[in-house]
């Protein structure tokens, strides 16, 4: 019900808000406001979750901080709006948040008919299944007739139905909105299976399971889930800023620049590094930012590898396909020049 109220409120906001896009660019509006408003997950370990002191932590959160560093030269000029899967697009469409960085899968429908633009991929994910070890299930192909716990309104729900249809199997979904409640149902044995992105399964098993060893993640990955930050249609400059902030994180790792080394490497003779830190060229100015935007991003937030190691590695995540292309992964930034 709360969601409905929020969705209704957001719809109303969409109705009442005069068209601001024409009057002022997003960048100017964000600068005037003094902070970036960023939509994040309500709590997913490793991606966005408040720590014991109420500080938001995770790779999605760090992307928001990186955008703030690029725009303001200050990674703390960001405010977070925790959003459920169902609120997120309305919140972005209605202008409640400037960037949506909330483990959101890039799909054609979302990119087109929802009026959104995906600014790249921060984590290549895929949907998987987790089952209690004592069921003795070894493969997702053995799940015929199973009861599956799933959260509503996500690509997860569609992939799940597709996979069982494609394999001629049946299942019973138990669809519960709040993560807490759906996990309670799974851990109480209401369902045989819990399904979400593998990253979510790993995080949940590490942080929520009474005993992590009692649950196994099945080997099948049934979908492609490229997760990335999203902006709304209508302001290409803001889209570019978010997109190239993400690329700067990847490029920094490829160039060997980290938050600890970038200051001393700033004077390196390597022309790529010179362009990156803004010593030569006008990349920052072309984006409408300070020329040291990428330098600030790396100095204040770190490179992609640092962010991954700080947030995901402790939970048991493997770099896998999220490694740089030079190390056999999919992470590849176009040249910053």
């Amino acid at each position: 019900m709360r969601t409905i109220m929020l969705a209704a409120a957001a719809s109303l906001a969409l109705a009442a808000a005069p068209d601001r896009a024409a009057a002022q660019t997003m960048l100017a509006a964000v600068k005037a406001k003094g902070y970036v408003q960023c939509g994040v997950n309500t709590g997913l370990a490793g991606f966005s979750q408040p720590d014991s002191r109420g500080q938001w932590k995770g790779i999605d959160v760090d992307l928001c901080r990186a955008v703030a560093a690029a725009v303001f030269g200050d990674a703390s000029k960001v405010r977070f709006t925790p959003l459920t899967a169902q609120q997120r697009f309305t919140a972005l469409q209605s202008g409640e948040v400037d960037v949506l960085s909330r483990n959101t899968t890039w799909t054609a429908t979302r990119d087109s008919s929802l009026g959104l633009n995906f600014a790249g991929v921060i984590y290549y994910d895929g949907q998987g299944f987790m089952v209690p070890r004592k069921l003795g299930v070894k493969s997702a192909k053995q799940l015929n007739g199973a009861t599956v716990c799933v959260q509503p309104g996500t690509t997860t729900e569609l992939n799940l139905a597709d996979y069982f249809r494609a394999n001629g199997m049946t299942f019973k979904p138990v669809v519960i909105e709040k993560l807490e409640e759906v996990l309670n149902a799974y851990f109480a044995g209401r369902c045989d299976v819990y399904t979400t992105d593998v990253s979510g399964l790993v995080a949940v098993r590490a942080s929520r399971a009474p005993n992590p060893a009692d649950h196994v993640i099945l080997p099948e990955v049934i979908s492609k889930e490229p997760l990335g930050p999203v902006v709304r249609h209508g302001d290409d400059q803001w889209f570019d800023i978010v997109k190239w902030t993400l690329f700067a994180l990847l490029e920094a790792e490829e160039l060997g620049l980290s938050s600890k080394t970038i200051e001393q490497n700033a004077s390196s003779a390597n022309p790529s590094i010179q362009r990156f830190v803004g010593a030569t060229g006008d990349i920052g100015k072309m984006l409408g930012l300070d020329n040291r935007w990428a330098f600030n991003v790396v100095r204040l937030v770190g490179n992609y590898g640092e962010i991954f190691d700080a947030n995901l590695k402790p939970l048991g995540f493997d770099r896998g396909i999220n490694n740089l292309w030079t190390n056999g992964g999919l992470m590849y930034a176009p040249p910053i020049r």
Binding site: A10, Q86, F89, E157
Partner: peptide, 15 residues
């Protein structure tokens, strides 16, 4: 409401 919620999120047709 549950089904309509899911529909809204799959299609983006909130209004």
């Amino acid at each position: 409401v549950s089904i309509a919620n899911t529909t809204i999120n799959q299609t983006g047709q909130a209004i």
